[in-house]
């Protein structure tokens, strides 16, 4: 059952994570937005994905 659950978790997560990142530039993006702010926004977008990958990996190893 653990293996089934793990496969299900990956099946649900993987396409969604890929699609989340497959997003074009914001149409209403602020033209005065600084490069530093853009980089920080990228970091914030990556954090949940890194956390998710770590959780799945630790769950598989538990």
């Amino acid at each position: 059952m653990r293996t089934t659950a793990l496969v299900l978790a990956v099946l649900f997560a993987l396409p969604a994570v890929l699609a989340v990142f497959h997003r074009g530039p914001a149409p209403a993006a602020d033209p005065e937005e600084t490069a530093a702010h853009r980089r920080l926004e990228t970091v914030w977008a990556i954090v949940p994905v890194v956390f998710l990958v770590a959780l799945i990996a630790y769950s598989a190893a538990a």
Binding site: M1, F12, A16, I56, S59, A62
Partner: peptide, 20 residues
């Protein structure tokens, strides 16, 4: 999309052996 991710995470208690 985030609903898919949320469902994936909700299954992890079973994947980690903590739930049945």
């Amino acid at each position: 999309l985030w609903t898919f991710v949320m469902i994936a995470v909700s299954i992890l208690p079973v994947a980690s052996g903590a739930a049945g």
